[in-house]
């Protein structure tokens, strides 16, 4: 049974198509990344999953059943637009949000305290939300998503605006939750984050699904035609005929090799050539393309802004 299953889901806001014929499924216990540039329809998709909006056509199933508001008690949702009651005290707020998810006040308060300790924000418990830093508010919102111990955790851009220390803290927490059997879906436009965390991904671009599947499967479809080099000295080996293109970041070079029909190219000749030119090489690594490179290869270019950007997908 899939935890989430979308079949041919379409949604349009007036003339603007937000989601176009989207289908994918999320198996239990996976860390699922919903990827795509800004304005590609990630938030619209998520909103339909949890019943904030309804698809124009297609079906959405949660926990193997057609959508029903009662299952929302098993879902934790962190929206992209963070929001808390500014004037409310942190603990009151967490208890209130926990109660909305069906907890009683005592359980909610107990769990909230435990989480605050785990995320190292105990000093914030008795403060008003408006007195907290942005990072702290984000942690509190993170906690409010998890208080009712949901089986499915949906997070829209969970790490945006966090410093690396806190981002790592939240990533570790999510990894722990996945280990304990929870299913996690998060969306991001930062593909480098996803590479290490996700088991499965769905990549959408201009409202359409362009790639889906397990991380390993997707990567294995692409030949290992990338070379990462740390090199100083003579750089004339970069004119070698096996190189299709390269980027030189003074000392660090990223090379894309020519490959015919998915056949893995041989990098040995290039290495030999570089040594022959007398370059000093401290690293030479043949890799698969990164997710970002795969994405760019698939859709051409990443459009950072969405020209027809609808106000609904803020």
């Amino acid at each position: 049974m899939a935890i989430v299953e979308l079949q041919n889901v379409c949604k349009a806001y007036g003339a603007k198509i937000a989601v176009d014929n989207l289908s994918f499924r999320i198996e239990p216990g996976t860390m699922f990344g919903l990827l795509g540039p800004n304005g590609s329809g990630k938030t619209s998709t998520i909103r339909m999953m949890i019943g904030i909006t309804v698809p124009d056509s297609g079906t959405i199933q949660l926990f193997g059943k057609p959508f029903d508001r009662n299952v929302l008690k098993r879902v934790g949702y962190l929206p992209e637009e963070r929001g808390l009651y500014k004037k409310m005290k942190v603990m009151d707020q967490l208890v209130f949000l926990g109660q909305l998810h069906g907890l009683d006040a005592i359980t909610a308060s107990k769990r909230a305290h435990a989480w605050c300790e785990r995320l190292q924000i105990t000093e914030a418990i008795h403060k008003k939300t408006e007195d907290l830093s942005k990072g702290m508010q984000q942690k509190i919102q993170f906690i409010s998503t998890l208080l009712h111990e949901p089986d499915l955790i949906i997070m829209d851009e969970p790490f945006s605006g966090l410093d690396p220390v806190n981002a790592t803290l939240l990533i570790d927490t999510l990894v722990d939750l996945r280990k304990s059997g929870k299913t996690i879906l998060f969306s991001t436009h930062r593909m480098d984050q996803v590479e290490k965390m996700c088991d499965q991904i769905a990549l959408i671009h201009q409202s359409k699904l362009v790639l889906a599947g397990s991380m390993r499967e997707i990567k294995s479809q692409y030949p290992r035609n990338r070379v990462q080099m740390n090199v100083t000295g003579d750089m004339s080996f970069l004119q070698h005929p096996s190189i299709e293109s390269y980027k030189d970041y003074s000392g660090h070079v990223e090379i894309k090799l020519r490959s015919e029909h998915g056949v893995e190219p041989d990098a040995q000749a290039l290495l030999a050539d570089a040594i022959a030119h007398g370059s000093h090489i401290s690293r030479f690594e043949v890799t698969e393309p990164t997710l970002e490179e795969i994405f760019i290869e698939t859709v051409g270019t990443v459009s950072e802004t969405n020209p027809t950007g609808g106000s609904l997908d803020a």
Binding site: V75, Y77, P79, G83, L97
Partner: peptide, 9 residues
């Protein structure tokens, strides 16, 4: 404050 989106969930 965008809180309603949490509530709407």
């Amino acid at each position: 404050s965008r809180i309603f989106e949490v509530l709407l969930a």
